[in-house]
Each structure stands twice: as C-alpha cells, then as structure tokens.
Nucleic acid binder design. Structure first.
Lengths: 156, 156
DNA sequence: GCTTGATCTAAACCTGAGTTGAGCTTTCAC
DNA sequence: GTGAAAGCTCAACTCAGGTTTAGATCAAGC
C-alpha cells in the first residue's frame, strides 16, 4: 500500500474537480464519510475519489442527492460501488434517460404540429392540453400543465 | 363586446389552472400587466388568458421566466403573442429541444458503453470525461463535469 | 345594511445544491 | 520554530419559481 492512503479534503477536491465546500456538503448529507486527524481535519480514503465520481455521474443522470444517498445506503457497510453495483444502477439510469428522451420527443412532435398554427388556445392546443406531466422541471411545488385540463373552458 | 371584458384574478386563475399567487408573481415579474379597480383590485383582459397560456407553454419548453419576459418584451406595445410571433418563437424552441434530445442520446450511448464496465474511473470513464457541458441542470453555480478533465490524474 | 367570499399587501417560507464569510486552528516545508 | 497554506465550524446567502400567512379591505347578493 501507499504511504498516503488517506487524502485531505483539498486533494479530493482537486482530483474530482468538485469544490471543497461541496465535499463538506456531501459529507453533511451523508454521501461521504471522513476520518479525522487529531486536529480535527478530515481525511478521506483514496477510494472516495471513486465515490465522488459515482456521485457526479449519478447526478448527471438526473438523480437528486437524496436519491444517490439512498443508492449508496444500499451498499453493504459503507462500501463504494463496484462493477456489479454499477451495472445494476446504470441499467436503471438508462431507463430514466429513455423516459426523458421519449417525453422530449413527444413535446417536439407536438410543437411541430403547432408551428405556424399559432392557436395558443387552452381549449385546442395539444401542447397545452397534453395529459403527461413527465417533463416537470425545477424546484418547488407548482401547478402542472394539464392538471385541470378537463375544467378549462376558454371563451377568449 | 362582452360586458365583462375585464376579469378578476380568481377568474384568470381558474381559467388557466394557475394559482392566484402565481399570477400575482407573474405580474410582479413584469410578465402580465393588470388594470385596477377604484378599490385597488386587479382586473385583467380576457386576452391575458392567452398570455398566461403562452407563459405556461414556453415554460414547459424549458424557458425561464426571465427568458419569457424577454420574449414578451419584444412584442410591440404589450401586445399578446399572435400566430406570427408564435411561429417565430416555437421554431426557436424546437431547436432547443433538439439540442436537449441530442445531449441525452449522447449520454445514453456512453452509458451503454459503461454498463457492465464498472470502471468508475476518472481517467478512463467516458461518462465522466466527456467534454460537453450541455446537460447541466439545476440551480446555482457548480463545478461542471469535465471542467478540469485535463488536470485529473487518478491513482486510486 | 350586512355578511360572506374574494382580494389586497408585505414579508416570510420552501426546495435543492451548493457558496461565502468570519474568525480560528492545524499542518507542512524550510 | 516559524510562516504560509489549507482546514475547521456555523450561519447566512444564492437562485428560481413560486406558496403561505396575517391582517386589512373590497365587492356583491340578499
């Protein structure tokens, strides 16, 4: 083994491209666990570089940090994800991506039907009156498009 | 014309499915303009139903409220978007959607190459080391995947 | 004229994913 | 052994897109 199996927060940050503050934040969220020196400084395992890169990749796939924490929590004894884990997880991620692509393609097709139509009518517009709520984005509760489509009567 | 060309905020909310608080918020953001009664209550034009539906559709296409405000500001004299405006705007939206779909498809293809590989290596992983930053999501500044790919040397 | 429901304002609160700052302490290389 | 760089904690702040709450006022039907 190397002499330096333990790395400081700054090195973990440098090796993963993540800000030091973000690493502390991940630790606070329970995504990472750090040992401490006598003086109270964090020391990470080299293997945590993998763990952080797992977090980044999963995040890019659209998982929230809570989702990722849940995945990591399912691994035995705080182990980092290995090949078998990754195969299982990435297969699930693929399904998510397919869903997102399909939703965007539906939207695109509706938009194609709309270009040049200019109806902008709540009653008639396929874009507005679609039933699927799949493409919800952004934070916070909000009224979803289509939520009350049945009740809308436009008399503009 | 109708006797009731002006509608109260609650009616606009009911007809569009948007919460009353959201409509006030849109007004504060400059997306809507309201007249006022002698008592200070808002009165909207019936045509504002269209305007709100434009906001909802554009929002679903991935525009922020600021983007939408900018679009609306380009219309002459506070006019609501008509067919020609909508054709112009929706053509631009289509391009955005195509970009998002393409980014997701690239991610999916990379993921396919990764399933079963389990490398999770910063040095080798195509998912991690990709150059494109297109699929950035979420609020706040953050280090982007791939930002510093050239500097990363993993020795895990 | 009264009551009820709708509306008003302003400010505070929410989520998610972090960043920033102040004021100290630890570590490391020379 | 010393000085600089890196680390520590905790709270407050950011941003978007709103919601919630409180207390006051308005509009309308009977």
């Amino acid at each position: 083994m190397h002499r330096t199996d333990l790395i400081a927060i700054g090195e973990l940050a440098a090796r993963t491209g993540v800000a030091v503050s973000a690493i502390r934040f991940y630790e606070a969220k329970g995504l990472l666990a750090a040992l401490r020196t006598g003086g109270g400084q964090r020391r990470f395992l080299r293997a945590d570089i993998r763990r952080v890169s797992f977090i980044l990749i999963a995040q890019q796939m659209g998982l929230s940090l809570d989702d990722i924490a849940a995945e990591l929590a399912r691994l035995p004894a705080g182990r980092n994800p290995n090949a078998a884990d990754w195969a299982r997880i990435s297969t699930a991620l693929r399904a998510r991506i397919d869903t997102r692509i399909a939703a965007l393609e539906r939207t695109r097709d509706l938009l194609d039907g709309c270009i040049g139509c200019g109806c902008l009518s709540l009653k008639k517009c396929a874009l507005y009156n679609r039933a699927d709520k799949a493409s919800q984005r952004g934070a916070g509760p909000r009224y979803l498009l289509g939520d009350r489509a049945g009740e809308i009567v436009e008399r503009d």
